[in-house]
Amino acid sequence: MKILIIEDELKTAAFLKKGFTEEGDVVDIATNGIDGQHLSATGDYDVIVLDVMLPQRDGWWVLQEIRKRRADQPVILLTALDAISQRVKGLQLGADDYLVKPFAFSELLMRVRNILRRCHVRAEDVLHYADLEVDLLRHKVWRAGESIGLAPQEYRLLAYLMRFPGEVLTRTRIAEQVWDMNFDGDSNVVDVAIRRLRRKVDDPYSGRLIHTLRGVGYVLERRN
């Protein structure tokens, strides 16, 4: 998943980023309402975790701006405001869920995944291509019916390729979406990750699926 966290408490934001990153997700952080609204409008996020008490513009405003653009953008409010009237307000404004601080990360993770199931983000829970399967909710991978164990970065890379079968993905685009980083032309981080991924999902099986376009990037494609 790609997740936007709009949270002004730096310790909380860092805690959330660490937790989601360990789950294999990519995380962007905004620490005020204006920046959060901008990222939500310009980025493509599976879910947005939104605090209410934010500097510059509060979470109520951010949520309303999100809903003006996208009725189906999953948003979960994460806030210290625990009055019933405030919970009702959040849901009336269009939040998919409301979690009160302090909270357990395991509960937040469960709620995020439940939201994604309900909203059918990315249309499918399991991606299929040729004899390859990726379960987006359970972080499981199979090829030819055999389970394949992947490291978190390898999983994120494969899941991203699986979302765009047959489409050439540049190294810059992969670096931005999978590692949340600006690609340095002198860096080989993407190439190294692709080699490791191929050793697990291509080399032991008949028919390579991950192909290189020299000077451009990579494509997930079945070729005769």
Rank of each mutant, 00 (worst) to 15 (best):
G33T: 08
D44R: 06
L99F: 10
G43I: 02
G43C: 01
L93W: 08
L109F: 12
L39R: 03
M110N: 09
Q86M: 12
D44I: 02
D46E: 05
A95M: 11
D58Y: 14
E65S: 13
L93V: 06
D25W: 14
T42H: 06
V62K: 09
A104Y: 01
T42F: 02
P102I: 12
D44M: 04
L99Q: 15
D51L: 09
L63P: 09
L39W: 01
V49R: 00
A80C: 09
L77E: 04
I76T: 03
D46G: 15
G19N: 12
I84K: 13
L78T: 04
Y45V: 03
V49N: 07
I29H: 15
Q64M: 12
L93E: 08
I84H: 02
Y98M: 05
L50F: 05
D97N: 13
T79P: 01
A30D: 01
M53W: 05
D58K: 13
A104L: 02
G94F: 14
K17L: 03
Y98W: 07
Q64F: 08
L109C: 01
E23W: 08
R57A: 10
N32D: 15
I76N: 01
P74E: 04
A71N: 13
G33W: 13
E22H: 08
I29W: 13
S40F: 03
R70G: 04
R87F: 07
G19K: 11
A80Y: 11
D44A: 13
K17N: 11
F105P: 00
T21P: 01
S85H: 09
G19H: 08
L91W: 11
V26N: 06
D82T: 10
Q37R: 12
K18H: 09
A41N: 03
Q64Y: 06
G24N: 14
V100I: 15
T21S: 15
N32S: 03
T79H: 11
P102K: 11
T42V: 02
E22R: 15
G94A: 08
L77C: 14
F20L: 03
D96C: 10
A95K: 03
W60C: 10
Q92L: 02
K17Q: 14
A71F: 14
L93A: 15
D35P: 05
A30L: 05
D82H: 09
L108D: 02
K68S: 14
D44H: 07
I34F: 11
D51Y: 03
V100N: 07
S106K: 13
I76E: 07
D51R: 00
L81P: 00
R69L: 07
W61R: 12
L108R: 01
V62L: 12
L63M: 03
L99R: 05
A30S: 13
L81E: 10
Q56W: 04
T79A: 14
D82Y: 12
K18Y: 10
